[in-house]
Amino acid sequence: MRFTVALLIVLALGGLVWVRLAPSDPARWHVNPLTTRDPGTPNFARIAPGQIVTPEDPATLAARIDAALLAMPRVTRLAGDPRGGFVTYVARSAVLGFPDYVTVRTLAVDRGATFAVLSRARFGRSDFGVNAARLAALRAALE
């Protein structure tokens, strides 16, 4: 019985280490939010292009989005560059370090610039609303 409990503890700890240290492959996660389908699980959120339009140029908007996301706790850039208008970030949960991937694409429109965002969890089926809250915070930071 003790062996079984010890084995379960070791497996659980190994899983937690894997969640925190698993490599993030840019080829898998740095995808165009304009053309990528919604994940098959409810642990994601989107901002569609045109929902927010600013009078600035796309490069300026991309820089503001980059600054807003990098100011959030435990967010780092995974791939892309704001100057190119296409960036993917990794946002990790506070305690266990679960990764979420946030991909942003900025676009020029007649009245200035807009953007598309896809924020999704890597593990699990539920994100407890974290991705939607992150995008709400991003909206607030840009206003």
Rank of each mutant, 00 (worst) to 15 (best):
R28F: 10
I9K: 03
L142A: 13
D25Q: 04
P99F: 15
A22C: 08
L138T: 06
A140M: 07
D81I: 06
R74T: 11
A63C: 06
E143T: 05
R139E: 15
A91P: 06
R134Q: 10
H30G: 09
L118Y: 11
D100Y: 03
A68Y: 03
R74F: 11
R139W: 09
A140R: 11
T103Q: 00
A141Y: 03
D81T: 10
E143L: 02
D57S: 08
D81V: 12
V31F: 05
D81E: 12
G85E: 09
D66L: 01
G124N: 08
R111L: 15
P42W: 06
P26L: 00
A136N: 13
V75W: 00
R134I: 08
V109C: 06
V17P: 00
A63T: 10
I9F: 07
R111E: 15
A45V: 04
G40A: 04
L107G: 00
T106K: 04
R120K: 14
L107E: 09
G97A: 14
A94L: 08
A22M: 14
S93Q: 07
S119F: 08
A6M: 14
D81R: 12
A79L: 02
R37A: 15
A116Q: 06
S126A: 08
W29Q: 07
R2A: 14
L61A: 03
D38M: 09
T88Y: 06
R74L: 15
D100G: 02
D100W: 00
A132W: 03
A22Q: 13
A132Y: 01
R92Y: 08
R2F: 13
E143F: 01
P39Y: 04
L78F: 01
A121W: 08
F3C: 09
T41C: 06
D38G: 03
A12W: 11
L21S: 14
P39N: 05
T54A: 04
V117P: 02
A79M: 03
R120C: 06
W29A: 07
T60H: 01
R139Q: 15
R105K: 07
D81S: 14
R134Y: 00
A133W: 11
R64W: 09
V109Y: 10
V102A: 15
L61R: 02
L70P: 05
T88C: 15
R37N: 13
V104M: 03
A137T: 05
L142S: 10
V75R: 00
